[in-house]
Amino acid sequence: MKNIFQWILFVFSVVVSAQKHETTDHSQEKTCLYLIGDSTMANKPDPTNNPERGWGQMLPELLGESVHVHNHAVNGRSSRSFIAEGRWQKVLDSLKPKDYIFIQFGHNDQKRQDSSRYTNPYTQYRYNLERFVKEARSKEAFPILFSSITRRNFNENGVLIDTHGAYPLVTRMVAKDLKVPFIDLQLLTEQMEISYGVEGSKKLHLHFAPGENPHRPNGIVDNTHLSVIGATLVAQLALDELEKQHIKF
């Protein structure tokens, strides 16, 4: 009888140990998602009071606890300055097999007045995107290319006018040539802006009169960066398109 009792205790301890091990392994299997890009994607400080958000900042809430989001996007960075400042190397050193990485540049690559950020879309910009993709793949990670979100730039006739020139096209070309998943956020956000209309689309961005928002006491008219509503919608557009392409985390 004593031997039977000891055997039962032994089996129970083995089962408990296995369950603990399974739980630990499960937590280690969480998907890691890295983001590199500019201010439209970046985390913004003081989210309690700050009306501005990057669309990457909204991903943790939308994806849930099964995905670890590491947002390395930074305000004002181009593909060139992101590399020059060592930010890409830091991300690359952190990448592990089966990690995902979202890549979105272009807004600041077009800054012709800034030699530290500007890139020719057909040469240096393309080369930088190819570098991100190839080096991420060398770590057995999965890169995904995104075109820049559109700016709210309606003309006097209510027509939304592009401001990004060749950069989204080159991103698409790199994705095609290197067989990388491509999310056309420019198209998706153009459709979103147009659907909200000239006036309604202001809520997607930062439009405050003086005194209207304590975080922007002098007021602001910013048609590039996103409000909480705008950032959430853009993040959801990105995730919906990924699902259409059968990319699941």
Rank of each mutant, 00 (worst) to 15 (best):
L188E: 06
S195F: 00
S227Y: 07
V174F: 09
H215R: 01
P181V: 05
D222W: 01
R216P: 00
A175T: 10
R172G: 13
H207I: 10
Q191F: 00
M192Q: 13
V198N: 01
K202Q: 13
E190C: 14
N223E: 12
A175E: 11
L185W: 01
V198P: 01
V221S: 11
I220V: 14
L178W: 04
M173P: 00
T189R: 04
G197D: 03
Y196M: 11
L204P: 03
K176L: 15
I183D: 03
L185A: 05
I220R: 04
Q191R: 14
L188R: 11
D177P: 05
P181I: 03
L188N: 05
R216H: 09
R172N: 14
V180T: 12
L185Y: 02
G197F: 00
V174L: 12
H207D: 08
D184I: 03
L187A: 14
Q186I: 00
T189Q: 05
P168K: 03
K202H: 11
K176F: 15
L204S: 06
G219S: 07
L187E: 15
I220E: 12
R216A: 03
Y196L: 10
A209R: 10
E190A: 11
R172F: 12
M173K: 13
I194F: 06
G219R: 02
E190Q: 15
E199G: 02
P181C: 10
I194P: 09
V180K: 02
P168A: 05
V174S: 05
M173N: 12
E199Y: 00
K179T: 13
M173I: 12
I183H: 04
V180Y: 04
I220D: 03
K203N: 12
L188C: 07
V170Y: 08
T189E: 02
G197V: 02
F182Y: 15
D222N: 11
Y196K: 13
V174P: 03
H205W: 05
Q191M: 12
I194R: 14
P217C: 09
Q186L: 13
V180I: 15
F182G: 02
G211W: 07
S227W: 07
K202M: 11
H205I: 06
M192K: 14
L178Q: 09
V170T: 08
I183C: 08
E190L: 07
T171V: 09
D222S: 05
G211K: 07
L169V: 10
F208G: 01
V198H: 01
L185H: 02
D177C: 08
E212T: 05
L178M: 13
H225F: 02
D177A: 14
V174G: 04
N213E: 14
D177G: 04
T189K: 06
D184L: 09
V198C: 01
S195N: 10
D184C: 08
N218M: 10
P210A: 06
S227F: 08
V170E: 10
L187H: 13
K179W: 11
A209H: 01
G211Y: 06
E190M: 13
L187R: 14
L206E: 02
S201R: 10
F182K: 05
P210D: 08
M173A: 12
F208D: 01
L169R: 11
V174A: 08
Y196E: 12
E212L: 07
D184Q: 08
H215G: 00
Q186P: 01
R172E: 15
Q186C: 09
D222T: 05
E199K: 03
V180S: 03
N218C: 01
H207V: 11
D177L: 12
D177T: 09
S227R: 08
L226Q: 06
P217G: 08
